[in-house]
Protein backbone atom coordinates (compact mmCIF):
# COMPACT_ATOMS: atom_id res chain seq x y z
CA UNK A 1 0.00 0.00 0.00
CA UNK A 2 2.73 2.44 1.03
CA UNK A 3 4.64 1.74 -2.15
CA UNK A 4 1.88 2.87 -4.55
CA UNK A 5 1.38 6.19 -2.77
CA UNK A 6 4.98 7.28 -2.62
CA UNK A 7 4.36 10.30 -4.83
CA UNK A 8 2.13 11.99 -2.24
CA UNK A 9 3.33 13.44 1.06
CA UNK A 10 1.95 11.62 4.11
CA UNK A 11 0.73 13.82 6.98
CA UNK A 12 -0.67 11.20 9.35
CA UNK A 13 0.35 7.54 9.54
CA UNK A 14 -1.55 5.22 11.87
CA UNK A 15 0.24 1.90 12.26
CA UNK A 16 -1.84 -0.83 13.93
CA UNK A 17 -3.24 1.54 16.56
CA UNK A 18 -4.94 0.10 19.62
CA UNK A 19 -6.45 2.41 22.21
CA UNK A 20 -7.72 1.35 25.60
CA UNK A 21 -8.93 3.54 28.40
CA UNK A 22 -10.14 2.98 31.90
CA UNK A 23 -13.71 3.45 33.00
CA UNK A 24 -14.28 3.79 36.73
CA UNK A 25 -17.54 2.96 38.36
CA UNK A 26 -17.17 2.83 42.09
CA UNK A 27 -14.39 0.45 43.03
CA UNK A 28 -14.29 -1.48 39.78
CA UNK A 29 -12.19 -0.21 36.93
CA UNK A 30 -12.68 -1.66 33.48
CA UNK A 31 -10.44 -1.23 30.47
CA UNK A 32 -12.40 -0.35 27.36
CA UNK A 33 -10.76 -1.37 24.12
CA UNK A 34 -12.07 1.45 21.93
CA UNK A 35 -9.86 1.19 18.84
CA UNK A 36 -8.53 -2.18 17.68
CA UNK A 37 -5.69 -2.24 15.22
CA UNK A 38 -6.44 0.63 12.83
CA UNK A 39 -3.94 1.31 10.03
CA UNK A 40 -4.13 4.11 7.46
CA UNK A 41 -2.01 6.76 5.76
CA UNK A 42 -3.41 10.28 5.26
CA UNK A 43 -1.85 12.63 2.71
CA UNK A 44 -1.41 16.33 2.13
CA UNK A 45 -4.53 17.94 0.70
CA UNK A 46 -6.91 15.15 1.65
CA UNK A 47 -10.19 15.69 3.46
CA UNK A 48 -11.11 12.50 5.25
CA UNK A 49 -14.50 11.77 6.74
CA UNK A 50 -14.89 9.38 9.68
CA UNK A 51 -18.18 7.52 9.78
CA UNK A 52 -19.60 4.76 11.94
CA UNK A 53 -22.32 4.24 14.51
CA UNK A 54 -22.18 5.79 17.99
CA UNK A 55 -19.36 4.41 20.08
CA UNK A 56 -17.48 2.99 17.11
CA UNK A 57 -14.29 4.76 18.18
CA UNK A 58 -14.28 7.73 15.77
CA UNK A 59 -13.71 10.46 18.34
CA UNK A 60 -11.25 8.28 20.25
CA UNK A 61 -9.22 7.76 17.08
CA UNK A 62 -9.15 11.50 16.38
CA UNK A 63 -7.96 12.20 19.92
CA UNK A 64 -5.17 9.69 19.45
CA UNK A 65 -4.12 11.36 16.18
CA UNK A 66 -4.09 14.68 18.06
CA UNK A 67 -1.74 13.09 20.59
CA UNK A 68 -4.29 13.52 23.38
CA UNK A 69 -4.91 9.82 24.00
CA UNK A 70 -1.77 7.72 23.69
CA UNK A 71 -2.19 4.43 21.82
CA UNK A 72 -1.81 1.37 24.02
CA UNK A 73 -0.17 -0.43 21.10
CA UNK A 74 0.95 0.62 17.64
CA UNK A 75 2.22 4.03 16.59
CA UNK A 76 0.80 7.22 15.14
CA UNK A 77 3.17 9.45 13.17
CA UNK A 78 2.19 13.00 12.29
CA UNK A 79 3.55 16.02 10.46
CA UNK A 80 3.47 18.98 12.83
CA UNK A 81 1.00 19.04 15.67
CA UNK A 82 -2.51 17.99 14.64
CA UNK A 83 -5.21 20.01 16.38
CA UNK A 84 -8.78 19.32 17.31
CA UNK A 85 -11.08 22.17 16.48
CA UNK A 86 -12.43 22.75 19.94
CA UNK A 87 -11.58 25.05 22.79
CA UNK A 88 -14.70 24.79 24.95
CA UNK A 89 -12.92 23.26 27.90
CA UNK A 90 -10.55 26.19 28.32
CA UNK A 91 -13.27 28.82 28.57
CA UNK A 92 -14.80 29.96 31.85
CA UNK A 93 -18.43 30.95 32.14
CA UNK A 94 -17.77 33.49 34.86
CA UNK A 95 -15.41 35.50 32.69
CA UNK A 96 -16.34 38.09 30.10
CA UNK A 97 -16.38 37.16 26.43
CA UNK A 98 -13.43 39.47 25.95
CA UNK A 99 -11.25 37.63 28.45
CA UNK A 100 -12.39 34.26 27.13
CA UNK A 101 -11.14 35.15 23.65
CA UNK A 102 -7.70 35.80 25.14
CA UNK A 103 -7.76 32.74 27.39
CA UNK A 104 -8.99 30.43 24.60
CA UNK A 105 -6.40 31.78 22.17
CA UNK A 106 -3.57 31.26 24.66
CA UNK A 107 -4.84 27.75 25.41
CA UNK A 108 -4.64 26.91 21.70
CA UNK A 109 -1.04 28.09 21.66
CA UNK A 110 -1.50 31.49 20.02
CA UNK A 111 0.75 34.33 21.17
CA UNK A 112 -0.68 37.43 22.85
CA UNK A 113 0.22 39.39 19.77
CA UNK A 114 -1.63 37.03 17.39
CA UNK A 115 -4.67 37.27 19.65
CA UNK A 116 -4.53 41.08 19.66
CA UNK A 117 -4.36 41.10 15.87
CA UNK A 118 -7.27 38.69 15.43
CA UNK A 119 -9.35 39.82 18.40
CA UNK A 120 -11.73 42.09 16.50
CA UNK A 121 -12.26 39.51 13.75
CA UNK A 122 -13.11 36.82 16.30
CA UNK A 123 -15.66 39.01 18.06
CA UNK A 124 -17.15 40.28 14.78
CA UNK A 125 -17.39 36.76 13.39
CA UNK A 126 -19.22 35.48 16.48
CA UNK A 127 -21.68 38.36 16.21
CA UNK A 128 -21.99 38.62 20.01
CA UNK A 129 -21.74 42.41 19.86
CA UNK A 130 -24.50 42.69 17.25
CA UNK A 131 -27.17 43.17 19.90
CA UNK A 132 -25.40 45.22 22.52
CA UNK A 133 -21.99 45.08 24.09
CA UNK A 134 -21.99 41.45 25.19
CA UNK A 135 -18.23 40.95 24.94
CA UNK A 136 -17.81 42.82 28.23
CA UNK A 137 -20.36 40.61 30.03
CA UNK A 138 -19.68 37.22 31.65
CA UNK A 139 -20.30 34.30 29.31
CA UNK A 140 -22.90 32.85 31.68
CA UNK A 141 -25.22 35.71 30.69
CA UNK A 142 -25.15 34.62 27.03
CA UNK A 143 -27.87 32.62 25.35
CA UNK A 144 -26.75 29.10 24.46
CA UNK A 145 -26.56 29.99 20.78
CA UNK A 146 -24.46 33.04 21.48
CA UNK A 147 -22.01 31.09 23.65
CA UNK A 148 -21.73 28.40 20.97
CA UNK A 149 -20.99 31.05 18.33
CA UNK A 150 -18.25 32.60 20.42
CA UNK A 151 -16.70 29.18 21.10
CA UNK A 152 -16.64 28.33 17.42
CA UNK A 153 -15.18 31.72 16.50
CA UNK A 154 -12.34 31.31 18.99
CA UNK A 155 -11.64 27.74 17.91
CA UNK A 156 -11.63 28.67 14.21
CA UNK A 157 -9.25 31.60 14.68
CA UNK A 158 -6.12 29.52 14.28
CA UNK A 159 -4.86 27.74 11.15
CA UNK A 160 -3.47 24.23 11.41
CA UNK A 161 -1.30 21.63 9.61
CA UNK A 162 -3.64 18.78 10.37
CA UNK A 163 -7.08 19.83 11.47
CA UNK A 164 -9.70 17.61 13.05
CA UNK A 165 -13.29 18.70 13.21
CA UNK A 166 -15.85 16.90 15.32
CA UNK A 167 -19.39 17.34 14.10
CA UNK A 168 -22.02 19.46 15.83
CA UNK A 169 -19.63 22.38 15.72
CA UNK A 170 -21.69 24.51 13.43
CA UNK A 171 -24.40 25.61 15.85
CA UNK A 172 -26.37 28.82 15.95
CA UNK A 173 -28.85 30.35 13.56
CA UNK A 174 -28.92 29.85 9.79
CA UNK A 175 -26.79 32.92 9.08
CA UNK A 176 -24.11 31.77 11.49
CA UNK A 177 -24.19 28.24 10.10
CA UNK A 178 -23.48 29.63 6.63
CA UNK A 179 -20.59 31.67 7.96
CA UNK A 180 -19.13 28.73 9.90
CA UNK A 181 -19.43 26.42 6.89
CA UNK A 182 -17.47 28.96 4.87
CA UNK A 183 -14.89 29.26 7.65
CA UNK A 184 -14.47 25.46 7.79
CA UNK A 185 -13.89 25.48 4.02
CA UNK A 186 -11.25 28.19 4.51
CA UNK A 187 -9.57 26.21 7.27
CA UNK A 188 -9.61 23.19 4.98
CA UNK A 189 -7.88 25.18 2.27
CA UNK A 190 -5.07 26.30 4.58
CA UNK A 191 -4.69 23.04 6.51
CA UNK A 192 -2.67 20.21 5.04
CA UNK A 193 -5.19 17.51 5.90
CA UNK A 194 -8.66 17.68 7.40
CA UNK A 195 -10.45 14.97 9.37
CA UNK A 196 -14.19 15.34 9.81
CA UNK A 197 -16.34 13.26 12.15
CA UNK A 198 -19.97 13.46 11.17
CA UNK A 199 -23.24 11.59 11.30
CA UNK A 200 -24.54 13.60 8.37
CA UNK A 201 -23.48 11.53 5.43
CA UNK A 202 -24.25 14.29 3.00
CA UNK A 203 -21.72 16.53 4.73
CA UNK A 204 -19.14 13.77 4.38
CA UNK A 205 -19.76 13.16 0.67
CA UNK A 206 -19.88 16.92 0.02
CA UNK A 207 -16.75 17.96 1.90
CA UNK A 208 -14.55 14.86 1.91
CA UNK A 209 -12.83 12.97 -0.89
CA UNK A 210 -12.04 9.96 1.25
CA UNK A 211 -13.79 8.22 4.12
CA UNK A 212 -12.90 5.77 6.87
CA UNK A 213 -15.65 3.55 8.23
CA UNK A 214 -15.10 2.41 11.81
CA UNK A 215 -17.22 -0.24 13.41
CA UNK A 216 -16.63 -1.38 17.02
CA UNK A 217 -13.11 0.00 16.89
CA UNK A 218 -12.18 -1.82 13.71
CA UNK A 219 -11.57 -0.16 10.35
CA UNK A 220 -14.27 -1.72 8.12
CA UNK A 221 -13.57 0.22 4.96
CA UNK A 222 -11.23 2.89 3.62
CA UNK A 223 -11.83 4.45 0.20
CA UNK A 224 -13.52 7.19 -1.83
CA UNK A 225 -16.10 8.95 0.36
CA UNK A 226 -19.09 8.16 -1.90
CA UNK A 227 -18.29 4.42 -2.01
CA UNK A 228 -17.71 4.10 1.74
CA UNK A 229 -20.87 6.04 2.63
CA UNK A 230 -22.90 3.89 0.20
CA UNK A 231 -21.51 0.68 1.72
CA UNK A 232 -22.19 1.97 5.23
CA UNK A 233 -25.77 2.87 4.40
CA UNK A 234 -26.37 -0.48 2.71
CA UNK A 235 -25.06 -2.22 5.82
CA UNK A 236 -27.23 -0.11 8.14
CA UNK A 237 -30.30 -0.92 6.03
CA UNK A 238 -29.51 -4.64 6.07
CA UNK A 239 -29.36 -4.57 9.89
CA UNK A 240 -32.88 -3.11 10.09
Amino acid sequence: MAEEQDARTPTVIADDVHITYRVHSGRTARAVHAVKGVTFVAHQGEAIGLIGSNGSGKSTLLKAVAGLLPPARGRIYTRGQPSLLGVNAALMNDLTGERNVVLGGLAMGMTRRQIRERYQRIVDFSGIDDKGDFSTLPMRTYSSGMAARLRFSIAAAKSHDVLMIDEALATGDAAFQRRSKARIAELRATAGTVFLVSHHHRTVTETCDRALWLEAGVLRMDGPAADVVAAYEADAKAKK
Partner: peptide
Protein backbone atom coordinates in the same frame (compact mmCIF):
# COMPACT_ATOMS: atom_id res chain seq x y z
CA UNK B 1 -7.75 -8.91 16.00
CA UNK B 2 -9.25 -8.53 12.54
CA UNK B 3 -7.36 -5.28 11.91
CA UNK B 4 -4.07 -5.00 10.13
CA UNK B 5 -0.82 -6.19 11.68
CA UNK B 6 2.08 -3.80 12.35
CA UNK B 7 3.48 -2.70 9.05
CA UNK B 8 7.27 -2.43 8.95
CA UNK B 9 6.99 -0.25 5.83
CA UNK B 10 4.97 2.42 7.65
CA UNK B 11 7.65 3.30 10.19
CA UNK B 12 10.09 3.68 7.32
CA UNK B 13 7.63 5.84 5.40
CA UNK B 14 7.20 8.06 8.46
Amino acid sequence: DPGARPHPGLAALA
